[in-house]
């Protein structure tokens, strides 16, 4: 459990780093490392399929997409971030962490969640029998994403 807590702390640190770093390439790499740590956490929680998806798709494919976009938009002028936000961000975040540590334990009993009760079978059975509609939705979402990207990168017609 100590190792798991350390991994989660590293995950939060890397995520904050991904937001706070000025260089876009470095923050994309910090995001990839955060996904890798989250995938390891998923494995240790006993969810290997979610871990595999997190590491291969989020840490791999999304990082490639981010780095590609950063390379394509590199020569643009620098965006000037507000200086006030750079000071306020860490202060508010630390204050939130303190409130989180104080309140969350008491809040937990009041939040409704899934009823306790065992489930049987393997991951494949649950996914294909219990959540078939989700799979159909996933196929539709992937198709919609492909069409959206195609529409966005479409070349202009000559007579326009």
């Amino acid at each position: 459990m100590i190792l798991q807590t350390a991994l989660l702390a590293v995950l939060v640190a890397l995520s904050v780093l991904a937001i706070a770093l000025k260089d876009l390439l470095r923050s994309a790499i910090a995001l990839a490392l955060a996904s890798l740590v989250l995938g390891i956490v998923f494995f240790r929680m006993g969810a290997p399929y979610a871990g595999v998806f997190e590491i291969s798709v989020v840490a791999g494919l999304i990082t490639v997409l981010f780095i590609l976009t950063i390379a394509l938009t590199k020569s643009g002028d620098e965006v000037r971030e507000s200086k006030l936000a750079n000071i306020v961000f860490p202060v508010v975040f630390v204050a939130f962490l303190a409130i989180d540590a104080l309140v969350m334990k008491r809040l937990m009993g009041k939040v409704p969640a899934l009823a306790r009760g065992g489930e049987a079978g393997t991951f494949g059975e649950v996914l294909w029998k219990g959540r078939t509609l989700d799979l159909v939705g996933q196929i539709a979402v992937i198709l919609a994403g492909v069409f959206a990207v195609l529409a966005l990168f479409r070349q202009r017609d000559k007579h326009e």
């Binding site: 979610a50 997190e54 306790r116 009760g117 649950v126 219990g130 959540r131 989700d134 996933q138």
Partner: peptide, 20 residues
């Protein structure tokens, strides 16, 4: 809550949507 398989299915769905 001992529903790790359902939660896994939801997370996998979410990751696919995230990529899109």
């Amino acid at each position: 809550k001992a529903h790790i398989l359902t939660a896994q299915a939801l997370v996998v769905t979410y990751i696919v949507i995230e990529v899109s």
